[in-house]
């Protein structure tokens, strides 16, 4: 069995949320705030959604779409925001621009805003991730499979979402290691193609495990 040049260390994370004391009570305010909040906040409400999303809740894709649907009751805006796949943008700034453009276009097409009470406002946040070494390491594909199956779900977020979106590692940590340390470029490419948008971390884990199982079978065959 192939042995990696360096081990893969599984790291989980805890999300410490910070409130920014910036709020939106209608769609117009949402547009202005999205344009001006720190990039970390745009990240929190889009990519960070995957860390908080649970399988039994309706998938809105990001916090902005969820708010438009549930608090403002603007289904059309919710649909337009929900379809924004954050992974399709090269930078958070590009993602921000697109969100603002959608809001601007939506506001041009409809009349007055429906303002909500403060209780139902959109409250902007950001987060700080505290990393946690999980004590799981892999130097072979079989060990990697065992670690991937056992790791806390936050490790999937950190290595597959955070690394790609904010860490500057566009392939994600898993694919980078499979390609660079274990020299399995085909498997790495399949990992990169996994689409975490509108799903849960557990489903992403399941898909990754199936890819590894297939590779292990091929290796044995």
């Amino acid at each position: 069995m192939r042995t990696a040049a360096h081990p893969f260390l599984f790291v989980g994370c805890v999300e410490l949320r910070q409130t920014l004391d910036m709020h939106a009570l209608d769609e117009r305010e949402l547009m202005h705030r999205v344009a001006e909040v720190p990039a970390d906040s745009v990240f929190f409400h889009t990519f960070g959604y995957f860390l908080r999303h649970r399988p039994f809740t309706t998938a809105y894709g990001n916090d902005f779409a969820r708010w438009a649907a549930l608090e403002i009751g603007d289904r059309a805006l919710a649909e337009r925001l929900a379809v924004v796949d954050p992974f399709a943008f090269p930078t958070v700034e590009a993602l921000r621009e697109h969100l603002v453009t959608i809001l601007q276009d939506h506001l041009r097409a409809r009349g007055g805003d429906l303002r909500v009470e403060f209780d139902r406002a959109f409250h902007f946040q950001r987060s700080h991730l505290v990393e946690v070494e999980l004590g799981l390491a892999a130097t072979t594909l079989a060990e990697f499979r065992a670690g991937l199956a056992a790791a806390d779900a936050t490790a999937i977020y950190l290595h597959a979402v955070e690394a790609r979106a904010r860490g500057g590692r566009r392939a994600g940590d898993f694919a980078e290691w499979l390609r660079g340390a274990l020299e399995l470029p085909a498997l790495a490419e399949r990992f990169e193609r996994i689409d975490p948008y509108l799903t849960t971390l557990e489903r992403v884990r399941g898909r990754l495990l199936r890819l590894v199982d297939r590779a292990l079978e091929e290796e044995r065959g």
Partner: peptide, 14 residues
Amino acid sequence: LPGFEGRLGIPMYV
């Protein structure tokens, strides 16, 4: 909760 805060000049966590 976010939205429970008052105006402060320090970081505010949830």
